[in-house]
């Protein structure tokens, strides 16, 4: 599956249980939209590590890497290069 689809599906299934999937645009900030908080981010990290066989350092836990679908896709692409 394309990483974008997989990431979107995970976010919709795990963080948007009470919302419409259409609320989430590819560039929208997961923090600003209230989709992911500081406890939820660890769930996301677990998913990324397992799905894409990568290891995420603490220093990489920043919004620039993780705060939108676009950022996530780019980040995963860099890590799996």
């Amino acid at each position: 599956m394309e990483s974008r689809t997989a990431i979107r599906e995970f976010i919709v299934d795990n963080f948007m249980m009470g919302r419409e999937a259409s609320d989430l645009t590819d560039g929208g900030s997961l923090l600003d939209l209230g989709i992911i908080d500081s406890t939820g981010v660890l769930e996301l990290v677990g998913f990324l590590e397992e799905t894409f066989s990568i290891t995420i350092e603490d220093s990489e836990l920043v919004p620039e890497n993780l705060d939108s679908i676009d950022n996530l896709v780019a980040y995963v692409a860099r890590k799996t290069e």
Binding site: S38, T39, D58, V62, P63
Partner: peptide, 12 residues
């Protein structure tokens, strides 16, 4: 989850 790890998220 606290500490430096989640600083960016705590801040937001």
């Amino acid at each position: 989850i606290s500490g430096a790890r989640a600083q960016a998220y705590l801040e937001r």
